[in-house]
Amino acid sequence: MLTDITVSFAPHISKKHSTRSVMLDVIIGLAPAMIAAVIFFRLYAITLVATCVISCMATEGICNLIRKKPNTLDDLSAVITGIILAFSIPPAFPLWAAIVGSVFSIAIGKMVFGGLGANIFNPAMVGRAFLTASFGMMMATWTVPGTIDPNMPQIAASENAVDVRTQASPLAYSKNAQKAQYGARELNESVGDIFLGNVGGCLGETSALALLIGGIYLLIRKTISFHIPVAVLLSTFIFSGIAYLINSDYYASPLYHLSSGGLFIGAFFIATDPVTAPLTRRGMWLFGFGVGTITMLVRIFGSFPEGMMYSILLMNAVTPLIDRMFKRVPAGGLPSAR
C-alpha cells in the first residue's frame, strides 16, 4: 500500500510526512482560494466543490472495491483532485457534467494506472482536458462574480447557465487584443482586479492573491519545494515580458499574464504534484520552465486563450525522461565511471 510516498532516488532521509499529512497541508493551502471563490461566486463555489469532491471520493471507493484493493480514501488525494478540478472549471458549470469530469479524473486519470503514485498525468488535469474536449462551449462560459453583479442567482441549482450573466475571461480579452492587434494597453489597467480575483474565470483560479497566500503556506510548511513554482512564474514573466517589449499594443503586460488564468494554481498546486513532477532539483527547474514556456506559447501563438492545462499535461508526459536525464550520481560515482 502506498501510504508513504517516495520522492527521490536513494539515499533517503525519513521524515514524519505521510501522504495524509501532505495532502492535508495542500487542502489547508487551498483554503484561501476556497474562501475567495465563495466571496466571488457565492453558493456556486460550495455546490461545485462539494459535488466534485464527493464524486471523486465515490469513484475512488468504487474503483477500489472493483479491483478488490484496500481502501485508499483516507490518504485524501481524491479530495484534492476534486477540489482542484472544481477550481479549474467555470463556476456555473452544470453539476452533472462536473460529476462526469470527476469520474473521468479518478477512474481514467488515476485508478487505471494503479492508483496514487502510479499515475502519469495529474488526475484533475486529465478530467479538465476531457471536459474541455467534450463540452467546449460550457467550459468557456464565465460567470460575472457576485461582487460585481448583485443579481447573480444565489444557488447553482439550475441545470444550465442561461440565467447567469457571463463575460469573457481576462485571457480571452488579451487573446482578442492580440488578434485585433490593438487594445492591450487598456487591459493592463485591470491588473488589480485580476490579482484579487474580481473577474470572470474558473471557480478557484481567479484570485491570484488567495492562491499566493496558500502557496506561501505550503512553502513554509515545506510541503512543496520552491523550484517548480519559481521556475513557472519566472519563465512566464520572461516570455510575456519579451512579447510585451516587442509590442505593448498587441500583448498584455507580464503582470497581467501572471495574475490571470490558472497560472498560480498551476504553479503552486498542480505542477508541484509529487507523483507527476520530477524528483531532482535540476529536473524541477526544467519542468517548471517547460510549464511556463508552453503556457505562454499557447497564450501567445495558440488558438486557445489559456494553456496551463496543456502545458502541465505535456510536461507530465516528459517527467520520466527528465528524471532519467538528471539522475543523481550515487556516492562513489556511476558504475561506468569507476
Partner: peptide, 11 residues
C-alpha cells in the same frame, strides 16, 4: 443526453 464530443476525437 448531452453528447461527449471527446469520444469522437482520438482521445
Amino acid at each position: 443526453f448531452v453528447p461527449l464530443a471527446a469520444f469522437s476525437m482520438p482521445i
